[in-house]
Design a binder for these strands. Structure first.
Length: 353
DNA sequence: AAGCCGGGGTA
DNA sequence: TACCCAGGCTT
């Protein structure tokens, strides 16, 4: 008996992949371990179309693992700026340095050693070994979870540990011995192009004949939605201190909390605090309230009230503080800033020149 | 097990 | 508006 007849799931999927899969993604040509790793990390909770320009810019600046390991963190964060989940960039950077120090400058091919690196969990380690080296390891990302919950008719939110455990078992059972790299790409492509979240295109699906959700008309119910809960709204005042040369005072955020390590604006909890903070930082005489906006995170809303202090005169004391710096437009462009802060500063520049 | 961590796309 | 997305780490 051949492998093919025992595993119709993989056989049918691979036949579909040869004709309809994605074969021209940037990290597929060339497909080395460094590029696969970088793409997998960028793609964590982030869609392909978003990642592609970041990936191209990143490998254009840092083409090899050793280049990444030798880069300074500000460069890495600037390349990541706007992509979100910035801890991924720091883990990537640290993992590259570990590879140089402990693995001869290459990603380890051993699963446990690979998964021990920061930012590489079970699924990402499996994806790297399967795609870069053709080794038989399952993956379980959002695409695979969607395909498998439908194919096997599995109810319950996939983020729930009991459901996830079952999904890993199915993922492993379906993974073939041959063509593992193509299979891994194939099941993700199926999830990304046919077995999509809403209105899946079952008529073109190579797995429809064995799919429980398709048979029972449950494709709209699976995968089960996450139980919803109300999210809180927090508020902050962002200080835009601008000197006579139109340079803006940026502050590097601390190691904890959102946007950690990124360059952002000084903040205060309210307007009184903002005045006190501004007077600590510079000589200022008046403030102008800018248009407030709300930035939405997955776990809370952040209401931002920007306050503009123009013609500020820097206190000499802050020149010695490495986490504070006055930046012109060019310097801002080269730093890692949270997307809404970058957007705020750009709109300010556009309106007030 | 649940919370935390971004930003963009979509219905 | 609410949810989801090529998840992993921390508590």
């Amino acid at each position: 008996m051949t492998v093919d007849t025992r595993n119709a799931f993989a056989t049918d999927l691979l036949a579909w992949f040869d004709r309809h899969g994605r074969h021209d993604l940037p990290w597929q040509h060339p497909r080395d371990a460094y590029r696969v790793w970088l793409s997998e990390v960028m793609l964590q909770q982030t869609q392909v179309t978003t990642v592609i320009p970041y990936f191209l810019r990143f490998v254009g600046t840092l083409p090899t693992l050793r280049d990444l390991a030798a880069a300074d963190e500000d460069t890495v964060l600037a390349l990541w700026s706007g992509l979100g989940y910035y801890r991924r960039a720091r883990f990537l950077h640290r993992a590259a340095q570990i590879c140089v120090e402990q693995h001869q400058g290459e990603l380890p091919r051993d699963f446990d050693a690979l998964a021990a690196l920061p930012g590489i969990g079970r699924s990402t380690a499996g994806a790297i070994l399967a795609q870069a080296h053709g080794l038989r390891f399952p993956i379980l990302d959002g695409n695979v979870k969607r395909v498998l919950t439908r194919y096997h008719g599995i109810h319950g939110h996939p983020g729930q540990s009991a459901v996830e455990k079952v999904l890993w078992q199915h993922a492993d059972a379906h993974t073939p011995d041959e063509r593992v790299a193509d299979y891994t790409q194939a099941i993700m492509d199926l999830g990304a192009t046919l077995c999509v979240r809403s209105r899946p295109l079952c008529s073109g699906c190579p797995l429809a004949a064995g799919c429980v959700a398709h048979r029972d008309g449950l494709t709209a119910q699976l995968p089960s939605a996450k139980p919803s809960k109300a999210i809180p709204t927090r508020s902050t005042v962002m200080l835009v201190l601008r000197d006579a040369n139109k340079r803006v005072l940026l502050e590097r955020r601390g190691p904890q909390g959102v946007w950690s390590g990124l360059w952002s604006l000084p903040e205060a909890t309210d307007h009184d605090g903002a005045w006190r903070a501004a007077q600590q930082l510079a000589r200022i005489d008046d403030a102008q309230a800018l248009a407030p906006f709300i930035h939405v995170f997955s776990h809370y809303r952040l209401q931002v009230e920007p306050l503009l202090f123009d013609d500020a005169t820097a206190h000499r004391a802050i020149a010695d503080n490495p986490s504070l710096r006055w930046c012109d437009t060019g310097e801002i462009a080269a730093l890692g800033l949270p997307a809404p802060v970058r957007s705020l500063l750009q709109s300010l520049q556009g309106i007030m020149q």
